[in-house]
Nucleic acid binder design. Structure first.
Lengths: 362, 362
DNA sequence: TGCACTTTGGCAACACTGTTGTCAAAGTGG
DNA sequence: CCACTTTGACAACAGTGTTGCCAAAGTGCA
């Protein structure tokens, strides 16, 4: 690549980093808030440093006092909490036939939402206009109280997160090479971040759980994964990571569009097509087990239209297969669930693309 | 886990970070050295900050001037280079039947090496005594000029990198739960870092290439992988990541010791056992392709006794399969090679476990 | 040959970070 | 009632990278 050795850190970066750490703890604590001494203990910073940092954040309106806690033998600590309304972000999901937009606050809570039919196959300008119209309408509906941080866009892959350019989306060649991020940023006059829909959903997992490593498996028209490794979304150098569906699990299996034989996606979608959800779940479970073993995953979440239509057999099937394997390998159990707020997981995750830097996540 | 939000950064951490960045660039530049302005450009730090940092590092003896470069229209820049002898580290590899120890300098170059027969099945104290004797003999042979930073230990997994404790090594149940890191640290009175042999070898890749993501595939008595993701070794929460051999690639395949059917390891080792290296390479290639697609890997290196005995068919087979898949997916090519310095890859990687923090790697 | 220009790299002053020392406020518990 | 603990602020401090300035040492054109 550029040959750079990663960014040098200056005092500004130091400040942002520590502020983000404090904000993350405050966000995770929710309404109850956290006391200053607790923040100090959890971050490893001195109490005085925490006092300075929280004072700055309070001046920016990002946090507020939330009453006093019970004393533990001395002066009772003052709880601090995030002020969710202080900032907002927009999530925009471009799907094959629908565009969805949400306005979320700092806590990631959805404040307003809109969706409309969408033609991903339309000419770029037309589709872009439809998407921006949706965002503008959303903002008109619910004026964002605090500052608007930007727009996070989730689209089907492949695409490049770094440059914000779409690649050859299956079935929609006209988007290949289109600089979607910059085009939207110009039209909306807001910062824009672009990512794959699976990564957006995975980003929601970073927030939701304390799990260090998690995988979001999306079974829709295709089968993809969003990976959270070591607390951050893992994209790979070209945002191509997460191609979960095209792992070969049957050497002599049926041919797949990708050119290989016995891809998990082909087998799984075939099972779905013939209505055999049990077998689809079993196949998905095998792929998930491969993933868990390879990457030491703590948590698996399932999503996508096929799963959301009838989650139970999938969750049960995948959970069973992973649990059996974990037991044999005497590994701690891995939680398997449907993604929360199913249909909204991707859009709300998209909004978090914008929020993530504030909390030193991403 | 602990609920901590990652460590807060203070000024000391800031200094170490920037110093490590500079050291890494100097190490990668080798004998030729790097000029201060170039360091500034690559790190993003101001020239004056680089001057201060390099002055400190020079005072510690870690770097020295390396002559003047050609002028580019002004005062000619002074090249700075790492002083490899300034510090040393020990790498220790505990294998099933052999113990190997190397002394490496800051650049990772091997200065001295020893190896001896070893019985991993012996009682812990006995094996430990043999290992420490090997290290002491190595130090007696070649007195380390600069300060000795510590010992990096590579052992067959599973084990926990964080706590330095061995888990149930296949065939050697007596090691289960043994605190190898602390035991060795006590005996040698040196800092000790413990990691899986595959991870140690993978750490060598971080150094060697500019590849952001790489995988080291080890085909020996088993089949495992060491993963480098985003420039760092990826271990997972419990150092269990890298279980590459037990991915299912043939649903109705033969049973594997792990309890599943059609594991890559079982199929691949069976092919090796019947002398069919071409098929073994093909199977390895399928697993490698799965890995490359899932994790957007740039570089694959092959190692382990089976491969090193006759590398060519493996490299060719794996390279061909990945190349075909990459071409179909119009992805940039992935380099496939035998690991350099084959037999030594793991021990020298182990030594780098100790060096890594100096260069902000790991 | 002379001179304008560029680049290097050090020194001093600076703005800002987190840290330490100190102290008042406000509780608990014997 | 009083000793003790904890909270959280203020002031002084050490140390970071940054900025402004300048001498040294080259290049390249007139």
């Amino acid at each position: 690549m550029s040959g750079a050795a990663g960014p040098g850190a200056n005092l500004t970066a130091l400040r942002s980093h520590n502020a983000a750490l404090v904000l993350r703890l405050l966000r995770d604590a929710g309404e109850d808030g956290v006391s200053r001494p607790e923040l100090a203990g959890r971050t490893g910073l001195t109490p005085q440093a925490v006092s300075k940092i929280t004072a700055r954040l309070r001046a920016e309106g990002l946090l507020a006092e939330a009453g006093q806690r019970a004393s533990t033998g001395g002066k009772p600590p003052t709880a601090l909490r995030l002020v969710p309304d202080a900032r907002h972000a927009i999530g925009l999901q471009l799907d094959r036939d629908e565009v969805t937009a949400v306005l979320v606050d700092l806590a990631g809570t959805s404040v307003a939402a809109r969706s409309a039919p969408f033609d991903f196959g339309a000419p770029a300008e037309e589709a872009l206009a439809a998407a921006t119209a949706e965002v503008r309408a959303l903002l008109a509906d619910a004026a964002a109280g605090g500052g608007l941080l930007g727009v996070g866009v989730a689209a089907p892959g492949p695409l490049d997160h770094g440059s914000g350019v779409l690649h050859r989306v299956t079935g929609f060649p006209q988007w290949d090479g289109f600089p979607l991020r910059d085009a939207l940023a110009d039209l909306l006059a807001l910062p824009v971040v672009l990512d794959k829909d699976t990564n957006a959903a995975a980003l929601g997992l970073v927030t939701a759980g304390t799990a260090e490593s998690a995988a979001y498996l999306h079974l829709g028209t295709g089968l993809g994964a969003g990976l959270v490794l070591g607390g951050d979304v893992y994209r790979g150098a070209r945002t191509d990571a997460g191609e979960f569906g095209h792992q070969v699990i049957q050497l002599d299996g049926p041919p797949c569009d990708c050119g290989n034989n016995g891809c998990l996606e082909a087998l799984c979608l075939a099972a779905v097509a013939r209505g055999d959800r049990t077998d689809a779940a079993r196949l998905l479970g095998i792929g998930a087990t491969n993933l868990v073993r390879l990457l030491d995953i703590d948590r698996v979440l399932l999503g996508g239209r096929m799963v959301l239509a009838d989650p139970e057999p999938y969750v049960r099937g995948v959970a069973t297969m992973i649990a059996e394997d974990s037991a044999r390998a005497s590994r701690p159990p891995v939680s398997v669930d449907v993604v929360e707020r199913g249909e909204r997981a991707v859009v709300e995750g998209a909004a978090r693309l914008v929020l993530a830097p504030l909390f030193a996540l991403g």
